[in-house]
């Protein structure tokens, strides 16, 4: 029992590692494959943007509302803006964006590559002498690394904007106090730390999508399983890595 579990865990880690190497060792060929990367960036960005915007508006509004509600009687109004900005930049922005894009993008990578696997398209690439590591894996991981910080910055701006709407319109704190709060005690490390996280999340999303897609077998059902696994594993890895980055950076 335990031995089989350990064995399958090791083969999982080994398999992920192989895909990781397949992708990363081709990073130096990124300039020549810029078209493949660009088309991945576009499709990832376009497919995620609407949901990222929608979730961010509401997440920002809730954060501001809770910041006010929890601290009303004993904390000056100035700290509402500060609380929202810090929560968004350190945790909420990168984390929520990571989880949303994990759901949206790692699933579609796994579905696409899984279909290519079970219909022998990946074998066909191999036979044409085209390295799937360079042609399929590298562009997806690379695009994930680039698009996630971009989406995160967009999400953070919208979250702070949403928070501002609630505070100004609903709670009657003036715009200038809110904005002064946002700037108060701003630490650049928090912004950069959040963006570094998002780079790692983007990497994990691309990696898990590729890994589970490549491993798909057994027709449409296998592709479905690969899709679910890609989403679950990338979300879990995002949460785990978030904890460790928080420990190291802050």
């Amino acid at each position: 029992m335990i031995i089989t579990a350990i064995k399958s865990f090791l083969s999982y880690v080994g398999g992920v590692f192989i895909i990781l190497i397949e992708g990363v060792k081709n990073f130096h060929r990124a300039p020549k494959s810029y078209k493949l990367i660009l088309s991945q960036i576009l499709s990832m960005g376009i497919s995620s943007l609407p949901i990222v915007i929608l979730v961010s508006v509401f997440a920002g509004m809730v954060t501001a509302y809770q910041a006010v509600f929890q601290t009303k009687a004993y904390v000056p109004e100035l700290y509402v803006g500060m609380g929202v900005a810090k929560a968004v930049l350190i945790e909420l922005g990168p984390m929520l964006t990571g989880l949303i894009v994990a759901g949206r993008v790692s699933s579609s990578i796994a579905a696409e590559l899984g279909t290519m696997r079970v219909t022998e398209q990946i074998d066909a690439l191999e036979i044409m002498g085209i390295d799937p590591g360079r042609y399929l894996v590298m562009p997806r991981i690379f695009a994930g690394i680039i698009i996630l910080p971009v989406l995160t910055i967009i999400a953070e701006s919208i979250m702070i904007f949403g928070g501002m709407l609630v505070t100004v319109l609903d709670i009657d704190i003036s715009l200038s106090i809110f904005l002064r709060g946002v700037r108060t005690n701003f630490v650049a490390l928090e912004l950069w730390g959040g963006l570094i996280k998002s780079v790692i999340f983007g990497f994990l999303i691309g990696l898990m999508g590729c890994y589970h897609g490549f491993r798909a077998k057994g027709g449409a059902e296998g592709v479905g399983q690969a899709t679910t696994r890609a989403v679950v594993s990338s979300m879990v890895l995002i949460l785990i890595s978030d904890y460790f980055i928080a420990k190291w950076v802050f």
């Binding site: 290519m116 219909t119 022998e120 398209q121 074998d123 066909a124 036979i127 002498g129």
Partner: peptide, 29 residues
Amino acid sequence: YEIRKKIGMVFQSSALFDSLSVWENIGLG
């Protein structure tokens, strides 16, 4: 990969690349 350039393979399910047009499929190499 060098040796494979001497070999062409026709797959049972054809295995054409869905996301590419016919000419891109044939010309991908």
